[in-house]
Amino acid sequence: MPKLTILLADNSMDKFYHGLVLAIGGKALDWEVKFFVTSQAVVLFTREYKGKSKMKMGALSRFFVTWQMRKLKIPDTTKMLEDALKEGVDFYIDEAGLKLAGIQSSDLMDGVKLSGSISFLQEAKSSDVVVTL
């Protein structure tokens, strides 16, 4: 089975959304999908945020794009994350990034695992496609 590994290090909606699109696309092709999360992006995987993210743009532009997304029925990142988890995408959260953000592992959503750089490198080494965002 082909394997896709994604590395996300940014908490903006733009990058998170595209990472989720690729992860869901990978599962639709029946691929194994590993999704590593580090740096500022770890906050998206807490029980408080549950995948809720914001675009990095001004308030008015953000409001317009959010309105357009609703109009075009484009799902938000919370829904996309739910779908990705349901389809069996494996999410790995970097423990160092978590500590830097002052978050405990008990604050993480269910279904995600802790990991470090060696896990990412091993998965990346054995992957057919690696995407960093």
């Binding site: 869901i24 696309g25 599962k27 639709a28 029946d30 029925k73 799902p75």
Partner: peptide, 14 residues
Amino acid sequence: SNDICPVVILTVMR
């Protein structure tokens, strides 16, 4: 479905 591409493909996959 009016859903975007990956969501439709996921529906087909299911």
